[in-house]
Structures are given as structure tokens and as C-alpha cells.
Write a protein that binds this DNA or RNA. Structure first.
Lengths: 335, 335
DNA sequence: CTTAAATATGTTACCGATAACAGTTATCGG
DNA sequence: CCGATAACTGTTATCGGTAACATATTTAAG
């Protein structure tokens, strides 16, 4: 399969490569007759421009890099899948392509993905679920390379982000539990390394204060945003003498793990213990009991991030992008 | 952010660009001292090679294109997410990158994605869930461009594929239903345009014959592999005078839709009607009742496809790739 | 009818890397 | 001590496009 190049077309049409290039791009005048001839030759020879060569020439890759923390079976994470859907839709509308880059969780290695910015592979980067102590971030921000954070909030110079109302979302969840009569409410943290996890904890604490409830250390455990870990560690909550009557989990996956563990104790959700999640992933409506949760508009977050990134790339924006999307309580059966 | 190029490094080090290139690739001899100096300058200047330029030069993009049928919220499809996970893992191991390309369902437009093959963007293509009458396929096969089909079987010259045992998988499901005592078994087809859907239908028919059961047209409906459509159309099954006692669905999403519909009739699954799915997507274990289904090793399919594709690209393989992975019955509560 | 502007096309250089070939110097065996 | 080989480095051309400038031909305006 030897590719047809612009030179092949040019020589067959008896014109210079430049004339062919003009037909391709539509810029610059070409005689109607010439253009017609060139077009027919292109069709006949199945010509497709070499996009790599074009990228090199115009100094734009027409690619967006989507960097996601590398985990096992990457895309099974429904959250990431939804973000990707949003990004993909916007990219397509703008003739951009998407390149997936799983980056190592252990973000300690410096220069691990800042190098992608320097590799000319992407015109911009979408960083999903960045970690708070990620040493690449300051470097990236300083470099001026177009990038945007998804679900990571940082109000410093050079940072752009799209996030959802995590603090308020957590408060919504807590209000709901409080109204249901719960006073002993435990909290399952995600990872301490992500801003949205911290924000949800903050919302939890805010609410306790507001309702005049005591903050108890033994009521807070860390589930690392993983179902299995939440399953394991929730044991400590269930063994407490003053067992909580409700458990607020920082994400749905952990909520599912916690519910599973509660069942092993022969306890019922929500009668013995109510459980609420966060995110509203696809499964939450199918699990049993169906999960009460706080909806994040994840697909919209992806769309918003991609749109903003394209604006940054196109220099259509001067101010930093800092968007916070609304969350919403979705009441089902687990509370 | 002006990128440092190989020329910058070369002139700063007082050598030719070629020497720098040799240090980069590790091919060709470079004096230890020179190499050291060049490396330190590269580090100092934050040099990263322009991968676009390199691609043009070596005539390899180091990208795999993953073409998936464009649907709403693309990546929510758990099947695609699992394939992607597998592909991504293998790609990473081999320093390849993944580019996602949603392609229009209406595959009628000729040349829609064959052009990707000619654009030099990819070294190979993974085609997920191709349609039977896709006019691009023969053209692609003829072109000799490296590609592999996932869940599409076609034993013709130029076609490579990875699929699972769909016929046998369907027979496993039918056996299970038969053993459970069911004699009136309905079938919900996926789309007639995919080979795996046809294969499952074939397995259904095979089993009917084997068990001496009559094939009834009114027992077969088409759900287009969509939960909502299956929900709608399953009505016709439930309204039959001789209502089926079991419904075999070509995929899990449709099974979920069917179960939902059965519930609206005030009937119970599995007591009144048993339902079995296909795929074993993530949700199937969470739904209620938990879904009995036929597991496809989707993640492995992705891995296998990517591995094979890389072999084809590297010319390490001369024979067509035709792999069929095993399916397995997973019994839960819906039967 | 002349000149300026618009149209149509070509030339040269360049994007940033690598391949192929060509020197030059150092090393080694006989 | 000399020729041969290996080690090191450079030169030139090329991948397939596009930008900037130059030139030739029309067309329009005065």
C-alpha cells in the first residue's frame, strides 16, 4: 500500500505541488478548471493528505491529549467513561482527535507527562483526576501549555479547571440524611490526594457543625475511591459500639462496597443503616437497594472542559477557566 | 513556550544534529564524553523530541486507531470500555498510543473511515462492532492496511478478527434454560447487521432443534442491542397467549430492559419468567435480580486484538488472525 | 490605452526529525 | 610499521505537507 502523495497528484495534473495544496485547503485562488481536474485526479488515485506531514508543517497536531490516572481496566471507571464521552463529542465537532494517555498513579516521577506537552503530540491536555501533590502540575502551569483540569480545583495563576460543587453536594447529602432523622453519620473519604475528596469531607464537616453534631474521628474512614477498600475498612464502622445509622460515601463505588459489607453483617440497608453515595454512576440505579446519591454532571463536565480547552488553544480566552457545575441529590432506596 | 529542537541542542553542544539524533535513538556510535555532554544539555533545556517530526521521518505514527460506532455517550457502553482497557494495556507495553475514532453508524457513506488508513495517522486499526454491510470493509481488506475486527467474523482473504464463541455461548444459555425446565423460550435479537448477533440467533436455533422444540417466529423479536428498544418490543412477547417462560437476550443491556418490562406486568423474574443475558457487563452483577448471563472475555478480546494487530504491523505474522475466545455461563438469580 | 489590482501559478525554504553515505581519526593484527 | 577495521562525526537528501514571496496573465478602472 504505497501512499499517494501531493507530488503524485501534482505531476499527474501537470501543476506544482502548491497548486494542489491550494485545492486541498481552499485557501488561495485556483482556476476552476484546474481545480476540477486536480480534484478528479485526487479521487481517482484515492488521495488522502498525510496528516502527520501537515501537522508538522502547520505546527498543530489537531489532537487533544486526555490524561487519566492509570488503573486496572482503565475505562471500566464509569466516571472516566462519561468524561471521555463529553470530550469526544466536542472534539469531533471541532475536527479534533482524542488521544488517550494513561499516566502512572505514582506521580512522583517528575517530568512524566509534562513531556507530552513538549512532544508536540497534543495541542492541549485534559487532566482527569489529578493528584494534589503532583509535581508536574506547577511545571505544566508555568510552561503556558494549554491544559485544563477535570475535577481538581486550584485557584492559582496558570490553572484552568472544571469541577462540580463538591462541598455543596456533600451538604445536600448530609441534609438529606439529617432530615431522615440520622444523627450518627459516618463518612467514607476518597483519597486525600484529590481536591474533590477534600471538598466532600469539608461539606461533611460543615453540615455536622450546622446541625450541631459532634465530629468523631472514628466515624471517618478512608476508602481510596475503591469499592474493595471501602468494603474492607467499613468493618471498623460496623464494629463500633455506637454504630452509625447512616454512612455517607464520597463516591458510588465505595457505597456499593459498604452496602455489600453491611449485608454480611446481616443488617439491612436502609432500615438498619442508610447509605448514600456520590457521582450517580450508571450502576447506582441498578444496585439493590438502588443507591441514593449526589449526581455530578460528568458528561457535561467533559464537554465543558473540552470546549474551554479549545478556546484556550485558539487564544479565544484570556482569563483563567474556572467552572463549577451544579450537583443534585438523587433519592433512591438506600436511605 | 518555544520548543527546543534538535538543532538547538546540536549548536549548543557544538556537534551536528545527527550526533544528537544518535544519542536520542541509541543507534550508531557516539563517544561517551560527547553523549554525556549532549544528554546534560538536553536535560538542561528540557528537550523532548518532536514526535510528529519523527513520525514523518520514520514513516510510522506509533498510533493505533480504535474505531467505534458512534452512539450517544460513547464510552458508557461497558463493552467498548472493556475492549478499550485491553487495547490500551497492550498498546502501552509496546510504546504505542491510542487514538479514539467514533465512526458514524450509517456506514453507507463510502470512504468514511478507509480514509483514516490513508491519512498516515495510524499504523493499524482496530474496528469494534463493524456492521455486516459496511462498504468500507472490502476496500480496507483489499488495501492491505493492517487492521483487525473485534466481534465480527469474516473468513475471507484479508480479514483478521478476534471474536468469542457466540454460537456456543448461546447454546450454553439455552442448555441452562432447558435444564431449568423451560420449553417456551423466546429470543431477543441484537441487530441483524452484526455477525455476533446472527451467531447467537444461530445458537438459539441449534438448541431448539437439539431439544426438539419448535421454532416460532412470534418468539423472536429484535432489540437492536438497546435497552430501551428491548423494553418497548418485549411487550409483544408478554402479550402472547402462550407466553414464553424464559427469554434469552443477545446482550445484557437488552436483558435489563426486558426485566424492567416484565416487572411492569407485575410478573416476577425468575419465578414467572426467567431472563438470561449475554456479555457479563459490570452492571449484570448489581441488577436485581442479578443477571444470569454468558460471559464474553471482553478485556481479553481487546488485549488479543491489540497484540495481533501489532504483530501484523510488525510483519511478524503471515497468516490471517482468526481467534475465537471462550465464553462461559454465569448463573445468578434471573433464571 | 495604460496602469493598477486581482487572479493564477510556480519557486524556494522550512517544519524537525532520520537514513544513507562519506569522511576522519583511533585501534589492531601481522 | 602499514594496511585494515572499527569508532566517531558530519553532509546531504528526504519524509509530505505549507508559508512567503515571486512571476505571469487577466481583468478592471481611469
Amino acid at each position: 500500500m504505497n501512499k499517494t502523495t501531493i507530488s503524485d497528484i501534482a505531476s499527474k495534473a501537470g501543476v506544482s505541488r502548491m497548486t494542489v495544496s491550494r485545492v486541498l485547503s481552499g485557501n488561495g485562488p485556483v482556476a476552476e478548471e484546474t481545480a476540477k481536474k486536480i480534484k478528479s485526479i485526487m479521487a481517482e488515485m484515492n488521495y488522502q493528505p498525510n496528516l502527520i506531514a501537515r501537522s508538522l508543517s502547520i505546527r498543530k497536531s489537531m489532537n487533544l491529549g486526555v490524561l487519566i490516572p492509570k488503573t486496572e481496566q482503565l475505562f471500566l471507571d464509569n466516571y472516566i467513561a462519561q468524561v471521555l464521552s463529553g470530550v469526544s463529542d466536542i472534539a469531533q465537532e471541532n475536527d479534533y482527535r482524542i488521544m488517550l494517555v494513561p499516566v502512572n498513579q505514582s506521580c512522583s516521577e517528575k517530568g512524566s507527562y509534562i513531556n507530552y506537552a513538549r512532544s508536540n503530540l497534543f495541542d492541549g491536555i485534559i487532566l482527569v483526576k489529578a493528584k494534589i501533590n503532583d509535581p508536574n502540575l506547577p511545571e505544566l502551569a508555568e510552561s503556558g501549555f494549554p491544559f485544563i483540569l477535570v475535577n481538581y480545583r486550584k485557584n492559582e495563576h496558570g490553572y484552568n479547571y472544571v469541577d462540580s460543587e463538591n462541598v455543596k453536594g456533600a451538604e445536600l447529602a448530609m441534609e438529606h440524611l439529617y432530615e431522615k432523622g440520622h444523627r450518627k453519620i459516618a463518612f467514607v473519604e476518597g483519597t486525600k490526594e484529590e481536591t474533590n475528596s477534600r471538598d466532600r469531607l469539608k461539606g461533611y464537616k460543615n453540615s455536622l457543625k450546622k446541625f450541631g453534631l459532634e465530629y468523631r474521628e472514628e466515624y471517618v474512614i478512608c476508602g481510596e475511591f475503591e469499592k474493595e477498600i471501602a468494603y474492607e475498612r467499613s468493618e471498623s464502622l460496623l464494629n463500633l459500639v455506637e454504630r452509625p445509622t447512616a454512612i455517607f460515601c464520597s463516591d458510588d463505588y465505595m457505597a456499593l462496597g459498604v452496602i455489600e459489607r453491611i449485608k454480611t453483617y446481616g443488617l439491612s440497608v436502609p432500615n438498619d443503616i442508610a447509605v448514600i453515595g456520590f457521582d450517580n454512576i450508571e450502576i447506582s440505579q441498578f444496585s439493590r437497594p438502588a443507591l441514593t446519591t449526589v449526581r455530578q454532571p460528568i458528561y457535561e463536565i467533559g464537554k465543558t472542559a473540552a470546549t474551554a480547552l479549545l478556546n484556550i488553544i485558539g487564544n479565544k480566552i484570556s482569563q483563567p477557566v474556572r467552572k463549577i457545575l451544579k450537583t443534585k441529590l438523587i433519592i433512591r432506596e438506600s436511605t
